[in-house]
């Protein structure tokens, strides 16, 4: 435990430093998020065409959802899958496997460190901007325990989901084509770009069975009060189900892959 705690501390420090090495790069990436927020806000204003409500959602709520979802995306961002597939492809995975810590555990620590960096550098500044610019004005936000539980669930789900696909790379060596297709589906069905409640009924029903909505839509909908009461419990159960599923799958893949792995390169 002490090893993991020390490891987490030093990883957080390194991730943060790494992010701040190149100043111009840092400022440009801040700018890019600002531009994205501004574009999406303009888009929703245009789509509402002066109406105050569409499908029972006010423009103010919609704008709030947009801004919060971008911040949430920064919080939940995970590059475990990319990190593993890249290392398998160029063979540097062998260096990760000669460490005195289990590889999946190492990856989780790295992910925590990454999130620490994201929260300090991105999430906190943006939350301040949201409050200062009044994006949350006139919107009733729910910040109770159910929201935090769903955010934590989404975070863990995202990690094990990516870990699972990363582990598949041990078998297949190359799955980037498949992953691109999957990400396109994810962009639509996670509700991070367009809220799921605007979907046609059948697509909405389909989205409920996919894991993607449990990563973005569930916590965000709870936050802005779109899901309430007993619906929260069932949404969290679905999320928990996916979480356990991907946890099991990733563990299984990891055990198996250690035995049949081929390492690239000399």
């Amino acid at each position: 435990m002490k090893q993991l705690w020390d490891y987490l501390k030093v990883s957080c420090k390194i991730e943060l430093e790494n992010q701040l090495v190149f100043r111009s790069n840092f400022f440009v990436s801040i700018l890019s998020v600002v531009i994205r927020v501004a574009m999406l806000l303009a888009l929703w204003s245009a789509l509402y065409q002066g109406k105050t409500q569409v499908d029972g959602i006010s423009l103010a709520t919609m704008k709030c959802y947009t801004v919060v979802s971008i911040v949430f995306e920064l919080f939940i961002a995970c590059n475990v899958e990319q990190s593993v597939t890249g290392k398998v492809k160029d063979g540097s995975i062998s260096m990760m496997l000669t460490r005195p810590a289990s590889y999946p555990v190492t990856l989780f620590i790295e992910q925590l460190a990454n999130t620490f960096q994201a929260v300090v550098v991105w999430v906190i500044p943006y939350l301040l901007v949201i409050l200062l610019c009044g994006f949350a004005r006139g919107v009733q936000l729910y910040l109770g325990p159910w929201f935090w539980a769903s955010a934590l669930g989404a975070y863990l789900l995202m990690f094990f989901y990516q870990l699972f696909f990363g582990m598949i790379a041990f078998w297949t060596q190359e799955i980037s084509g498949f992953l691109q297709a999957r990400d396109a589906v994810m962009l639509v069905f996670s509700g991070s770009m367009v809220p799921l409640w605007f979907f046609p009924e059948k697509l909405f029903a389909l989205a409920q069975y996919l894991p993607f909505q449990a990563m973005y839509s569930v916590p965000l909908s709870i936050l802005i009060g779109k899901i309430t009461g007993p619906d929260i419990r069932s949404a969290l159960l679905v999320q928990l189900g996916w979480l356990l599923g991907f946890w099991l799958l990733s563990q299984l893949c990891w055990r198996k892959s250690r035995r049949r792995m081929i390492v690239n390169g000399g």
Partner: peptide
């Protein structure tokens, strides 16, 4: 030690990589 792969953090001072190793290996 692999001559063609590095364990060092490319953009950071050497001491950071050493501290990282210190924590990882306890």
């Amino acid at each position: 030690v692999f001559g063609q792969r590095s364990r060092l953090w490319w953009n950071l001072p050497v001491q950071d990589s050493f501290e990282y190793t210190k924590a990882l290996y306890q």
